[in-house]
């Protein structure tokens, strides 16, 4: 009986939980679910992939997009791309950052340090718009968590149990690989591109990735799919840098609690055996 009641309670809780969440409407085309190394409850980041993704970000995206919440030091921290200390220093030193004012009151440029934020490509939003046909390239720091697509029923119920949290990267991958010729009956406005998954199908960003557009340091063939996959993974890390610690601690906590609950259940039965109920 106790078990039955407990199951009922849990059932109700789940019923309540799943009844609620609203599905944000993206209104684009179909987004395919991809396999990600960090997917599900067991997934972790693939270091090599994050390093490749960073390279795509740096050599391709960073010309227009900022990554303003990420420090160079983050690139070397556990649970991320894990570049070595020397590599992080070198990557930071590659860019010039504006510092100051100095003793004379002037701003000056100096090579970047690991403690610096990644510098934005434009001085301000207006400058960014001016260089991009009036469109503002969004900051990419949390883009992997701020984009989604409609999962639909019953998928979002299963997502709860599988720990599926990759709507954002699935969407980004679909977007980056979703550039095609517009259908004949679809008029694309001047300066916009046709994209299969972007809401409204007209996106201001021209197709950003081209076959062999970059040369991967680890020799991987730089196909559009490969780069889209790598940079999406990198952006997931940028948005959720403590994902690995979260899941690791999660397992410890949940396993502890299940054992704990078992012990308490046995104790409860023992105590309640004293009274008829």
């Amino acid at each position: 009986m106790a078990i039955r009641s407990a199951c009922l309670s849990l059932g109700l809780i789940i019923a309540l939980a799943v009844a609620g969440p609203a599905q944000a409407e993206v209104g684009g085309g179909k987004v395919e679910t991809q396999k990600w190394s960090f997917g599900g409850i067991f997934g972790n980041y693939d270091r090599a992939q994050l390093q490749r993704g960073f390279q795509v970000m740096k050599e391709n995206c960073a010309a227009c997009h900022s990554l303003e919440y990420v420090y160079f030091r983050n690139l070397g921290e556990p649970g991320g791309p894990e570049f070595s200390v020397e590599e992080v220093k070198a990557l930071a030193a590659d860019v010039e950052v504006i510092d100051g004012p100095d003793d004379a009151g002037d701003m000056f440029e100096r090579p970047g340090l690991p403690s610096d934020l990644m510098p934005p490509p434009f001085a301000n939003d207006n400058a960014a718009r001016a260089s991009n046909g009036g469109a503002l390239p969004p900051d990419l720091s949390v883009i992997a968590k701020s984009r989604t697509y409609k999962r639909g029923f019953p998928n979002w119920v299963f997502d709860l149990f599988t720990g599926y949290q990759e709507q954002g990267t699935d969407y980004l991958y679909a977007l980056l690989t979703g550039y095609e010729e517009a259908p004949a009956d679809f008029a694309v406005l001047e300066g916009l591109s046709y994209n299969t998954v972007f809401p409204g199908h007209q996106i201001a960003m021209p197709a950003p990735l081209f076959e062999d557009g970059i040369e991967y340091n680890d020799g991987t063939k730089a196909t559009v799919e490969q780069m889209a996959r790598d940079v999406s993974a990198f952006l997931m890390w940028a948005a959720e840098p403590h994902l690995e610690a979260r899941k690791r601690i999660g397992f410890q906590v949940i396993i502890f609690l299940i054992i704990f609950a078992g012990l308490f259940y046995a104790t409860k039965r023992k105590i309640w055996s004293r009274v008829k109920h």
Binding site: L10, I13, G20, P21, A22, A24, I41, K145, S146, R147, T148, D159, L160, G163, Y164, Q165, Q167, G168, R246, K247, I249, G250, F251, V253, I254, L257, I258, A261
Partner: peptide, 19 residues
């Protein structure tokens, strides 16, 4: 707590909005 922390550790944005 198993129920609660499942969300916290494995589906933290489940109740949230991407926007």
């Amino acid at each position: 707590m198993v129920f609660f922390l499942w969300f916290v550790f494995f589906a933290p944005d489940f109740f949230g909005e991407a926007d």
